[in-house]
């Protein structure tokens, strides 16, 4: 054996250096790894405390009801978006697809009843499927495909609705229970959305392939080279996004008693903000349904809180935009971005 071999052999045989490298994570990582995931929850609790001090009736049943009702569609949209963001992509069309979904529901429920809901959910899922298919098969950036889809489905929505709100009176009962039902005096809509988030979290935590979307977002080539179809996973994420846009549409139609071609459009930013502020990284691979739940609650509590402390609602948009930029800047893993475009 040559000298060089022996020399490296000695270095390798020294267990202290090798073990050290393994045990001590890269600089700065341990702090972030341990504390960062808790920040959103701390922020949420702090927000609730501050607002309660200013407005003691914030924790009343009445305001809880309002909170839960407004969190329902937002949380559903955010959950759908989360699947796509976990893969490292983004679905800019999701709110427009939800709006489109409300139009479909308002048009179909009077004639078809529950069948209309099923059909509308199928259509929004199919839209997500097609988006995912184009992104995965053509290998083009998701933001631009879904930007195109945003225009496409807004346009169709405006077109078939005549650019106006469609009131739903006949057959409203099919969805109306979502708005009216109370469980332990709390609105079923919000509770249902939260239950869905918990179920997703449990499934992702226990299914054999529950972390596959995370893996895709973290290491796409390694996942593909392990024999897992990245195309199918990506399509799955977008299809789920479409499905959840549809579910959000059902919730909105129930709460608003109508459908409209831009009904959910204003939720695009808050929903994306909910995902990223909860701690799901825009680079993909890190995040989950409970984080998204916390993020959605932060957004809703803040909305209530801002008006409680007397901030003009006009500032809301400024706030969403700033939150998105700040949250992304904090959660982004720069080592994963080879070239930022």
């Amino acid at each position: 054996m040559t000298l060089m071999n022996r020399r490296t052999d000695e270095a390798a045989a020294d267990p202290s250096t090798a073990a050290l490298r393994a045990i001590v994570p890269a600089t700065g990582r341990s702090w972030r790894d341990r504390l960062t995931p808790l920040i959103p929850l701390v922020v949420l609790i702090a927000l609730v405390l501050v607002i309660t001090i200013k407005q003691p009736n914030f924790l009343s049943l009445y305001s809880m009801r309002g909170l839960l009702e407004s969190v329902a569609p937002l949380l559903l949209l955010a959950l759908g978006q989360m699947f796509v963001i976990l893969t490292g992509g983004i679905d800019l069309a999701f709110a427009a697809v939800a709006s489109f979904g409300t139009v479909l529901l308002a048009l179909w429920i009077p004639d078809m009843g529950p069948g209309g809901i099923v059909l509308a959910l199928l259509v929004t899922s199919l839209i997500g499927f097609v988006n995912g298919f184009v992104v995965a098969k053509a290998q083009v950036p998701s933001f631009i495909v879904t930007l195109g889809a945003l225009g496409l489905y807004s346009g169709i929505g405006l077109w078939i609705s005549g650019a106006s709100t469609i009131r739903l009176s006949e057959g409203y009962d099919v969805v109306g229970w979502l708005a009216d039902l109370r469980i332990a005096q709390l609105p079923a809509s919000g509770l249902l959305a939260i239950v869905i988030a918990v179920v997703i979290a449990v499934l992702m935590g226990t299914l054999r392939r529950g972390r596959a979307l995370h893996a895709l977002g973290l290491a796409e080539p390694a996942v593909l080279m392990s024999g897992i179809s990245t195309v199918r996973l990506r399509i799955l994420a977008f299809t789920l996004s479409g499905l959840f846009s549809g579910l959000a549409a059902v919730m909105l139609v129930a709460l608003q008693r109508s459908g409209g071609p831009s009904l959910a459009d204003s939720m695009q930013l808050p929903a994306i903000a909910a995902v990223v502020i909860g701690g799901t990284a825009i680079t993909g691979g890190v995040g989950g349904a409970m984080k998204t739940l916390v993020g959605a609650l932060i957004i809703v509590v803040l909305r209530v809180g801002l008006s409680a402390v007397g901030v003009d609602p006009a500032w809301e948009q400024v706030f969403y935009g700033a939150v998105i930029v700040a949250a992304v800047a904090l959660t982004i893993d720069r080592s994963r971005l080879r070239s930022i475009k």
């Binding site: 983004i90 800019l92 003009d312 700033a322 998105i324 930029v325 992304v328 720069r334 971005l337």
Partner: peptide, 23 residues
Amino acid sequence: KLGIPSFMATLGLGAVGIGIATV
């Protein structure tokens, strides 16, 4: 400087723009 992909940064700052306009 912050390393945020442009679609995300401009989406956020676009909202800020709409917000300032609304104010």
